[in-house]
Simulated scan of single mutants.
Amino acid sequence: MGSRSEQFKTGLVRVAFVDGLFEVKEDDWGNKYWGCTILIPKSDSLAVYEKAALEAAAAEWGGAEKAMKMIKDKIIHSPFLDGDGPQGKSKATGEPHAGFPGHWFLRVKSGEAYRPVLVDQKKLPIVSKDKLWSGCFGYSVLHSFTWDNPKKGKGLTFGIDMLQLAKEGDRLGGGGGVDVDKWAETIADEGGTELVATLASKGAGGLFG
C-alpha cells in the first residue's frame, strides 16, 4: 500500500492540465485517478514539500537517515520536475509547455475513489471547467506518498486532497476550455443575423536537487 505523509497546505501555485480534476484519467498500469500539474515558482522554497516527501520515505524505507541517502543516491525517483528541463517540454513539438519555464512542477494525483475537493474564493464548490482552467492560481492541500513499481522502481509522488481557487490567470494548454473573447469574432450571415464563430483554440532545490 505504501506510506504517506500528513496533509499540508501549499503556498500560491499555478495549475495546469486541469482536465484530470474534472474527469478520471488512467495511467499506463490501468490505475484510474484524478489529478493535475502544479507549478511552483523557482523563487519559492520547496521545504514544506521536501519535509512531506521525506516523512513518507522515512516511514516506508527504514527511517529518515536511510531515506535521505536513498534520495541523494537517486534510488528513489524524485517527484520534483524541472520546468526548464526535458520533462517541461512537449514530446510532440519539443517546445516548453506554456507557463512551465522558471518553475518546478509536480504531477499530483489521487485515486479514483478520492476525488479532490475544488472550491472557489468563497469556499463554494467548483463543478465546471468554466470556473477553473489551466493557468489559474490557487492553494492546494497535498500529501506525499511512496510507490514501488516492478518496472520503474521506487518513488515518491504527491496526492492532491483539495484545491482552492485564489485568482484567475492567463489560460495555458492542458485543458480547461477556450477563451471565447480571445479567439471568436462576430460574423454576419447572408440574412444579416450575427453568428459567433470560433476561429482557433490555444494549443494544447534542496534535498531532491
Rank of each mutant, 00 (worst) to 15 (best):
Glu6Arg: 00
Glu6Lys: 01
Gln7Trp: 04
Gln7Glu: 04
Gln7Val: 07
Gln7Lys: 11
Phe8Gln: 09
Phe8Gly: 04
Phe8Ala: 04
Lys9Asp: 02
Thr10Met: 07
Thr10Ile: 01
Thr10Ala: 09
Gly11Ile: 11
Gly11Asp: 15
Leu12Ile: 15
Leu12His: 10
Leu12Met: 05
Val13Tyr: 02
Val13Asn: 02
Arg14Gly: 11
Val15Lys: 03
Val15Trp: 10
Ala16Ile: 08
Ala16Pro: 07
Val18Met: 12
Asp19Glu: 12
Leu21Asn: 05
Leu21Pro: 03
Glu23Trp: 13
Val24Phe: 02
Val24Trp: 07
Lys25Val: 10
Lys25Glu: 15
Lys25Trp: 14
Lys25Leu: 13
Lys25His: 15
Lys25Cys: 08
Glu26Gln: 01
Glu26Ser: 00
Asp27Thr: 01
Asp27Lys: 08
Asp28Ser: 10
Asp28Lys: 07
Asp28His: 04
Trp29His: 12
Trp29Asp: 09
Gly30Leu: 08
Asn31Ser: 15
Lys32Pro: 08
Lys32Met: 05
Tyr33Met: 01
Trp34Asp: 00
Cys36Leu: 13
Ile38Leu: 15
Ile38Thr: 03
Ile38Phe: 00
Leu39Thr: 04
Leu39Ile: 08
Pro41Tyr: 07
Pro41Cys: 00
Ser43His: 13
Ser45Asn: 11
Ser45Cys: 12
Leu46Lys: 13
Leu46Asp: 02
Leu46Val: 11
Leu46His: 09
Ala47His: 12
Ala47Asn: 15
Val48Asn: 12
Val48Pro: 00
Val48Ser: 15
Tyr49Leu: 10
Glu50Asn: 12
Glu50Cys: 10
Ala52Ser: 07
Ala53Met: 12
Leu54Tyr: 02
Glu55Trp: 05
Glu55Gln: 15
Ala58Arg: 05
Ala58Asn: 09
Trp61Thr: 01
Trp61Leu: 03
Trp61Lys: 06
